[in-house]
Design a protein around this nucleic acid. Structure first.
Length: 427
RNA sequence: AGGAGCGUAGCUCAACGGCAGAGCACCGCGCUGUGGACGCGGUGGUUGCGGGUUCGAGUCCCGUCGCUCCUCCCA
């Protein structure tokens, strides 16, 4: 029996990896310009971190998380998202002691046990930013601006995207809003789907983003979180809207946007593509002012977002790959063709010499015919073929063939590097 | 988790229940030391896996695994 990859865990082959490298490089550059620095946290965490951080009742934790005991019986989890980890690390290493706002970003694999489909794998990749230590709505605006900026850098048209925005209030508003929702939905209990009946008890907010038609009908008339904000939250939201207008960032207020994680407070948003079907969200985020405290740290407000690489690449894949992609493809400049088996030793020496001089060079190890090797050389996009055989050994030189013009000349071994370098530059 | 469709060569796909094929790719030769074109030839398969029906199964039936799409959830 052939061993195959685990379900929902896919290989990214070299051809596609080029596009990944490009997208990742753009993201890293964009967030760096905004002042965010990378943080790398472990993929494995205590399961408790996500139960407390993301929320026990969320689908992500109670249905989709990879949980397993280690050899000592400690319950561990593959991270389903990274915000909880970043905040954990922020607390653990006392980053708050530095004062100011900690601006952090991450990029890496996440894991959720779901039925795989297009743009959704069990191991998938997210990038995200977290800004910790400020309640200023200007920071919310910056984070949203950064989200748009990343899309711009990747060449996604603004018209193809839209920002969904809402405020779900602070922990003081939440119980009141929850009660209002419960009061509203209770008479309609029998019209709700089984999931929502459960949500009615556990977390009535989540009924709002249920996609079952009957639930949607009922939810259409539900109270809005925006109408239940305290004065502080209302002011925060209004100032954010003002900043977004000043930045020229379009947004659509969506009272049904509540997001799937419990830690969100106040601002929540999603940047979505109009060209994607049901799974249209390219990134999502918001404010999480209570998370640090919930994880045992000092009360620290935070705001951030996370985006999916797979989905981004899906959207980008429908367009022509930008030139920047091809800059990352490295083929050999020089392809070496030892003629006769006795010349392999010298060929290896020449290869090592060229490579140490920074000239990409390669040769065939598959035992192919000379003709075939020459063919491969041009397929790989090499500029020169370099023959070394009996004739060349006698001359202490290599025969260099320009694969563009067909011009050939003998170059003494000692001058190879300078010869090839000079040529490459002039071109 | 529920629903639908599909699994045949590395890839894209053919084959009425009756000898498993084509194109591309790969390798060789034409050219014993010279590329992109062309021509000729060749390698490559437990038809996803396991059962069943049948004289005979890639084809029909059951199961299983995987993929795709939808619902759901989300990134």
């Amino acid at each position: 029996m052939k061993v195959e990859a685990v379900r929902g865990m896919t290989d990214i082959l070299p051809e596609e990896a080029v596009l990944w490298q490009y997208v990742e490089a753009e993201i890293r550059e964009a967030v760096a310009i905004y002042g965010y620095r990378e943080i790398r946290t472990p993929i494995v965490e205590r399961a408790e971190l996500f139960a407390r951080g993301v929320g026990e009742t969320t689908d992500i934790v109670h249905k989709e998380m990879y949980v397993f005991p280690d050899k000592k019986g400690q319950m561990l989890a593959l991270r389903p998202e990274a915000t909880a980890s970043v905040v954990r690390a922020y607390i653990e290493h006392g980053l708050y002691a530095k004062g100011g706002v900690a601006k952090l970003y991450y990029l890496g694999p996440m894991f959720r046990y779901e039925k795989p489909q297009k743009g959704r794998k069990r191991q998938f990749h997210q990038y995200g930013v977290e800004a910790l230590g400020s309640l200023d709505p200007a920071l919310d605006a910056e984070v949203i601006d950064l989200a748009w900026y990343i899309m711009e850098r990747l060449g996604l048209r603004r018209e193809g995207l839209f920002l969904r925005l809402n405020s779900i209030g602070c922990p003081e508003d939440r119980p009141r809003f929850r009660e209002a929702l419960r009061e509203y939905f209770l008479p309609h209990r029998e019209e709700l789907c089984p999931d929502c009946k459960r949500r009615l008890e556990e977390n009535p907010l989540r009924i709002l983003d249920c996609k079952v038609p009957t639930c949607r009908e009922v939810a259409a008339g539900a109270p809005r979180s925006l109408d239940h904000l305290c004065s502080g939250c209302r002011e925060h939201f209004e100032r954010l809207l003002g900043y977004l207008d000043a930045l020229g960032l379009a947004h659509e207020l969506d009272p049904k946007l509540v997001r799937g994680l419990d830690y969100y407070t106040r601002t929540v948003f999603e940047l979505a593509s109009r060209d994607l079907g049901a799974q249209d969200a390219l990134l999502g985020g918001g404010r999480y002012d209570g998370l640090a405290e919930a994880l045992g740290g000092p009360p620290t407000p935070g705001v951030g977002f996370a985006g999916g690489l797979e989905r981004l690449i899906l959207v980008l894949g429908e367009r022509e790959p930008p030139d920047k992609c091809f800059r990352l493809i490295t083929g050999p400049t020089v392809y070496l063709l030892p003629v006769g088996e006795g010349e392999v030793t010298e060929a290896l020496r020449i290869l090592a010499q060229l490579r140490r001089a920074g000239i990409p060079a390669d040769m065939d190890y598959a035992g192919r015919s000379l003709r075939k090797r020459l063919q491969v050389a041009s397929q790989l996009g090499a500029r020169y073929a370099l023959f070394f055989g009996e004739e060349e050994r006698a001359r202490g030189a290599a025969k260099v063939r320009d694969l563009g013009t067909g011009h050939e000349e003998y170059v003494p071994l000692g001058e190879l590097v300078s010869y090839l370098r000079g040529r490459s530059r002039r071109r």
